[in-house]
Amino acid sequence: MQRVNMIMAESPGLITICLLGYLLSAECTVFLDHENANKILNRPKRYNSGKLEEFVQGNLERECMEEKCSFEEAREVFENTERTTEFWKQYVDGDQCESNPCLNGGSCKDDINSYECWCPFGFEGKNCELDVTCNIKNGRCEQFCKNSADNKVVCSCTEGYRLAENQKSCEPAVPFPCGRVSVSQTSKLTRAETVFPDVDYVNSTEAETILDNITQSTQSFNDFTRVVGGEDAKPGQFPWQVVLNGKVDAFCGGSIVNEKWIVTAAHCVETGVKITVVAGEHNIEETEHTEQKRNVIRIIPHHNYNAAINKYNHDIALLELDEPLVLNSYVTPICIADKEYTNIFLKFGSGYVSGWGRVFHKGRSALVLQYLRVPLVDRATCLRSTKFTIYNNMFCAGFHEGGRDSCQGDSGGPHVTEVEGTSFLTGIISWGEECAMKGKYGIYTKVSRYVNWIKEKTKLT
C-alpha cells in the first residue's frame, strides 16, 4: 500500500490518463441519441435557420407576430419608411378606419389613436360632414345658397324668414311668412316636400332668348283662358290664391305678392273693366268669414305684352289694390325667389296649380277651390304637342294621358313649387288646347323671366 501511494504521488498524470480511459469505455446513459432527441424537440425550422439574422431580410411573422416588435424591426421587413409607417399605425392600436367614419364618399386613412378623412370636392370637416359648395344638395341650405369668396357655403332665406341657429334652416321672422300653410287642420295635408338634388348652379339658368321682337298675326285659340281631375282644397291650404270678379264672377285667378299687390295673367284683364279681388276665398257660393274683398285701382301688364300681336306672350300683369290686405292664416303671400332659384325650383319637376275653373272641358265651374299636382314636361315634348308657338318664356306641365289639367277660369292662378315646406311661385296658368285632352298640356308663363320686374313694381313704400 505504501508503494502504491508513492507511485500516485510521483505520477499524477498517469492516474488522470487511467481515469479518462475508464470513462470513455463506459456506456453513456444520461444523453439520448440524435434521433430520439429530435422526437422530443420537434420544432419547425425557421426561415433563416442556421444563418445569422443580421444578414437576412426581415420576416413579418418572425419579427412582429411571434413577439412584439419595434418600429426598427418592422422597418427591416418593409425596407421602406412609408410602408412601415402605414403598417405601424394599425399594428400599434388597430384600424381606426374600420367603422368607416368618413361621410359623403370620403376616404379614410388610419393613424395612431386617430384617423384622417380625405374629402371629395365640396366637403370638409373631420368626417367630411361639412358642405362647402352650393353645387351639392344646395349646400344643405333649406332655401338659398351662395358661395363666399373663400368658396364656403353661405345660406340665406327669402323675405319674412331668418336663418336658424344651425345656419342652414329657415324659420319665420314674421307672423305670416310667405308660402307657408298655417291653418292647423290643413298642415297635415301639406304636399310632399321637395329635397334639393345635386345641381350645376353655374349652368342652372337656361341660355334662352326671349323672342321679344317676333311679330306674329293673332292666333285663334280655343278655350285658351284655361282644375280638371283635381281635388277639393281645404280652407287655408292655398292662402296665396285669390279669385278675380268682373263682368262675371271667378273669371280668373291670381296670387298675393304682398298686402297691396296681386300677380295674374295679362290676358285676364281689360282696361276700363272694374275688377274686384277676393282673398281668403274657399267656396265661392258661401260666406265663410275668411274672405277679404278689395278693388283694383291700377293694372300693370308687362311692358312687352301686346294682345294685338299675341294674347299669351309675356302673359303676366300686376294688380294694385285700393287697401292693403290683412295677412292671416287664410290670406298669405306666395314666396318669389330670384331668377336663378325660381328656375331651379321649376326644374324640380312638379308643381301645384289651383283655381275655381271648370271641372271638365266646357263644363261647370268649381264651387270649392280645386288643386292638382302636375309634372313638368320637357321642352321637346311640349313643342311636338301643339302647332302653336311655345315661346321661351312659357313652359308645359300636365299629363300625356289627359284627364287632369287646369281649365277655363283658372287662368292667372299660381303654379307653385314647394321647397322644404315653403311654396314659391314658378308659373302662372296661361293657356292650353281644350282641357285635359290626351297628348295636350297646360301652358304656363315662366315666372323666372319676370321676377325682377315683379319685385321692382310691387315694392311697398
Results as ranks from 00 to 15, higher is better:
80 N>P: 15
27 E>I: 02
117 C>W: 00
229 G>P: 11
385 S>K: 13
109 K>F: 04
52 L>N: 15
170 C>E: 01
360 F>W: 14
226 R>T: 13
27 E>L: 03
60 L>K: 12
104 N>E: 02
173 A>K: 10
117 C>S: 00
321 L>I: 07
251 F>W: 08
316 I>Y: 00
128 C>V: 01
186 T>W: 08
103 L>Y: 08
273 V>Y: 07
367 L>T: 13
175 P>D: 05
69 C>K: 04
441 Y>M: 11
7 I>S: 07
352 Y>R: 06
417 T>V: 12
386 T>M: 13
328 N>Y: 00
322 D>I: 02
342 T>Y: 02
95 D>T: 11
84 T>V: 06
229 G>A: 13
385 S>I: 11
170 C>T: 01
183 V>E: 10
347 K>D: 08
360 F>P: 09
393 N>A: 05
354 S>Y: 07
419 V>Y: 11
67 E>Q: 04
368 V>W: 04
384 R>M: 11
448 S>M: 03
404 R>D: 15
33 D>K: 09
22 Y>T: 08
325 L>A: 00
56 V>F: 06
102 C>R: 00
94 G>C: 03
202 V>L: 13
224 F>L: 15
436 A>F: 06
309 I>Y: 07
432 G>A: 13
247 K>C: 05
197 P>A: 14
114 S>V: 04
446 K>E: 05
364 R>V: 10
311 K>A: 08
321 L>Y: 01
247 K>D: 13
95 D>I: 06
190 T>M: 04
354 S>F: 07
433 E>G: 11
146 K>G: 06
9 A>C: 15
420 E>M: 13
82 E>M: 08
270 E>S: 05
91 Y>K: 13
411 S>R: 14
109 K>W: 04
407 C>H: 04
61 E>L: 06
271 T>V: 07
340 E>I: 14
379 R>I: 11
88 W>M: 15
374 V>A: 11
85 T>V: 08
331 V>G: 00
262 I>L: 03
272 G>S: 10
281 E>G: 12
46 R>I: 10
314 H>N: 12
218 T>I: 09
406 S>W: 15
203 N>V: 06
156 S>H: 09
122 G>H: 04
56 V>D: 04
32 L>S: 14
269 V>M: 08
102 C>K: 01
375 P>S: 14
197 P>G: 10
47 Y>L: 10
304 N>Y: 11
44 P>S: 10
126 K>S: 09
55 F>Q: 15
420 E>Y: 10
177 P>W: 01
270 E>N: 13
104 N>R: 03
58 G>H: 14
401 E>Y: 08
213 N>P: 14
156 S>W: 11
111 D>A: 08
313 N>T: 10
